[in-house]
């Protein structure tokens, strides 16, 4: 296994378990099979271990960069622009009815 420069190295702790991967897949709404979990979990463990190397790199004095260019206040005027017709909007829908997107019954609550 090649190493990402600056990574912890192979002796580092495995940072992510199979159970965690299963939980994350659940959060991400992906139905991973046992076989997929067996396959992906160890790979993810190695990746997480490698990227964990950044944890000590920058201290509190270093600001975070969320955008490469320091631009602020980009606004749009409150003017209507033409959008899509209902037919265009619904053209790719797996199912539709009454000019609405038809989706299977929803179990959860609104947030």
């Amino acid at each position: 296994m090649p190493e990402i420069p600056g990574a912890n190295g192979p002796d580092g702790q495995v940072a992510i378990t199979r159970e965690e991967v299963a939980h994350l897949a659940d959060l991400a709404r992906i139905d991973l099979s046992d076989a997929e979990l067996d396959h992906l979990a160890p790979q993810l463990a190695v990746i997480v271990e490698s990227v964990a190397s950044i944890s000590g790199v920058a201290g509190d004095d270093v600001p975070a960069t969320s955008h490469p260019l320091p631009v602020t206040n980009v606004f749009r005027e409150d003017v209507v622009v033409p959008g899509l017709t209902a037919a265009q909007a619904l053209a790719a829908a797996p199912a539709s009815e009454q000019q609405r997107f038809s989706v299977p019954r929803i179990l959860g609550d609104e947030q």
């Binding site: 990227v51 964990a52 950044i54 790199v57 600001p63 975070a64 960069t65 969320s66």
Partner: peptide
């Protein structure tokens, strides 16, 4: 904080 937050700081260092 340990991952996303830290990665954004590394981004600053690289800049």
């Amino acid at each position: 904080d340990a991952y996303y937050g830290q990665a954004q700081k590394v981004r600053t260092l690289i800049s």
